[in-house]
Design a protein around this nucleic acid. Structure first.
Lengths: 354, 354
DNA sequence: CTGAAAGCGCTAACAT
DNA sequence: ATGTTAGCGCTTTCAG
């Protein structure tokens, strides 16, 4: 049983003024005589008064809180970073963040939205949405809604990355290093059939890859592209699969000299296959990842297409709290290629093979 | 401007009953005639009524909310997983989680505590605390307080890992594989001098390492142990340093055949040094990490001392919401060695060197 | 410049 | 079995 915290009336009594005056001092609005102000301030300090945000929210009908619904939070560091960026930006703007991890389950996502509504959050951010119906519920509640990374419809503001350009730049980089035969490894999520967005992030990356190859007068060979299916409950992101996908593309004598992998997570397991089969990176094969999450920690440090994850969060907050008079706003953020040690000149022959 | 959501009185009016009856239906307490219940339920459905948690919390003086203050959330996945475990367990128990990332800054941590108090959270969890003064503020607020991973005093409940035993088991594993000369690489955080806990997690791991060596009749050579300092703002966890530490220990001809590294993050950069200098793992040198965060993604997949991170969160929730009549409770969780491919038989001679 | 007071939406004790 | 009602602590309009 906790003792009752000090209330406004307690402070008022102590300072010999009314609650209205104390409120004016706390919020720095309205005119208060310096003398009175000082007295109130003293009472405030002595009592260690803390505003009751519940009462305030009830009265003002605004909570300065953002509900952040996120998916797949582990093991993919991507969404985690978005969450951090969002939290930082929200803090900056004087907002709090209520987090709810929906783990890609539409049902959990619905519960999350309901909790947020009950707490009367000012805005709800989906990173990303799983079931479009839940987005509609959020909208209907009157909260501002933002969809991040993979919007399911355009009735709310959204912020996405330019995956096509990002992938294309990675290919440009490899081509500039002399690579002519470049593979692609990606995987698609498919959790809730029929409810998932029809355009996946990975397919956009594949499109950028093809586009860039074409631009350079190259094209992907049939067998050099693997789009696997992300996986089981155990291994929801199918990260172990990169190992197998690599073996499909790189087992033969004739093989690409480079590969673009649609996420660092997948790239990590691709590197494991190379390590085990004694293919040196980048001497024998160059590798580019995507997301720049694990990249810096891998051996060798991975060249990766960086997504501005913290900025995702910052933009989401902006969109969530600005009272834009005009409709929803859609923002597309650029990526940047971070060159590390996993990419190098294409081998001129096979002499580098041990 | 959002329209007013339906209130209890609206539902009551629609169903032709009082608010008390509606409340009874919602909460399933008190007796209500089936017929009345049905009418109320219908009104509830038609209006899409949502409880106002602010009003409820104001009245009940409980919010069923846990404030979770965490540090260092990136790039160390450890705390993130604790946060996930905590969130999951809280959800299970019908609690929400308010997150605040204090980034190891005492000042931010203080702000976080204040926000939590304003929101009248029922409990505050520190993962881990940075400034003991903030823990005291939290306690003074009347909230239940739990310290995770590195408690700064024992006036609150806490949950920690058995780092000593964990490190010792790792050494046992290496010794069983024939290793006799085993190095240790660790690093200490030191952000807020004078305020930080005096016993760091890494030092406990070092102690376990020494203890186990001694038990096997071995001892650490002077030059085989490196305790670096975690770093700069840029690189707060000093992860890049593992690369340099490895070079210190492994550059000479005479070197250990195995190394225990006090975190996966650090181990990742140790592996980078080995990769670059063509030392094969585990043929030339065995490596054991700690935390089991990045371990599965590295090349080769790293043997690592797993901390039960999700359970940390679950225990924190238990301690946070149980109304224990007796004082604070301190829980120490066991670790488990996850053997992957970075550890193997000690090389019998140097023939494996390329 | 300051105070009085209505009410935000819900709960729970008490009355019927 | 159901209704009435007094607050929970704050904000804010309106009076003075």
């Amino acid at each position: 049983v906790r003792e009752n915290p000090t209330r406004l009336v307690d402070v008022a009594a102590r300072a010999g003024v009314s609650t209205a005056t104390v409120a004016r001092v706390i919020h720095g609005n309205g005119r208060v005589r310096p003398k009175t102000r000082a007295a109130v301030q003293e009472a405030l300090d002595e009592t260690g008064y803390r505003l009751n945000a519940l009462a305030q929210g009830l009265k003002k009908r605004r909570t300065r809180t953002i509900g952040h619904l996120l998916q797949n939070v582990f093991p993919n560091p991507f969404n985690v970073e978005v969450a951090l960026g969002l939290e930082a930006a929200a803090k900056e703007a004087g907002y709090r963040v209520l987090l709810y991890n929906a783990r890609d389950e539409p049902e959990l996502e619905r519960q999350g939205v309901e909790v947020f509504i009950e707490w009367r959050v000012d805005a709800i951010v989906f990173t990303p949405p799983v079931d479009v119906a839940n987005v509609d519920v959020a909208i209907a509640s009157g909260a501002r809604v933002v969809q991040v990374e993979r919007p399911m419809h355009d009735r709310t503001s959204s912020v996405v990355a330019d995956n096509v350009v990002g992938a294309a730049e990675a290919v440009d980089h490899l081509v500039a290093l002399g690579h002519r035969r470049i593979g692609f490894i990606g995987a698609q999520t498919s959790y809730a059939p029929g409810r998932v967005a029809n355009v996946s992030v990975e397919l956009e990356r594949l499109a950028g890859y093809r586009e860039a190859l074409a631009r350079h007068g190259l094209s992907a060979r049939e067998g050099d592209v693997v789009i696997g299916a992300y996986g089981s409950r155990q291994d929801p992101l199918g990260l172990a699969n990169g190992y197998e996908y690599a073996s499909r593309i790189f087992s033969g004598r004739e093989r690409p000299t480079a590969v673009l992998v649609a996420s660092d997570l997948l790239a990590a397991s691709v590197l494991q296959w190379f390590y085990e089969h004694d293919l040196r990176v980048p001497a024998d094969v160059s590798v580019v990842g995507f997301d720049d999450t694990l990249a810096a920690h891998l051996s060798p440090p991975l060249t990766s297409v960086r997504l501005p994850m913290l900025e995702f969060g910052a933009h989401a907050v902006e969109l969530a709290i600005s009272d834009s008079p005009d409709g929803p706003e859609h923002r597309r953020l650029g990526t940047s290629l971070v060159v590390r040690h996993s990419t190098g000149q294409a081998p001129t022959s096979k002499e580098s093979r041990s």
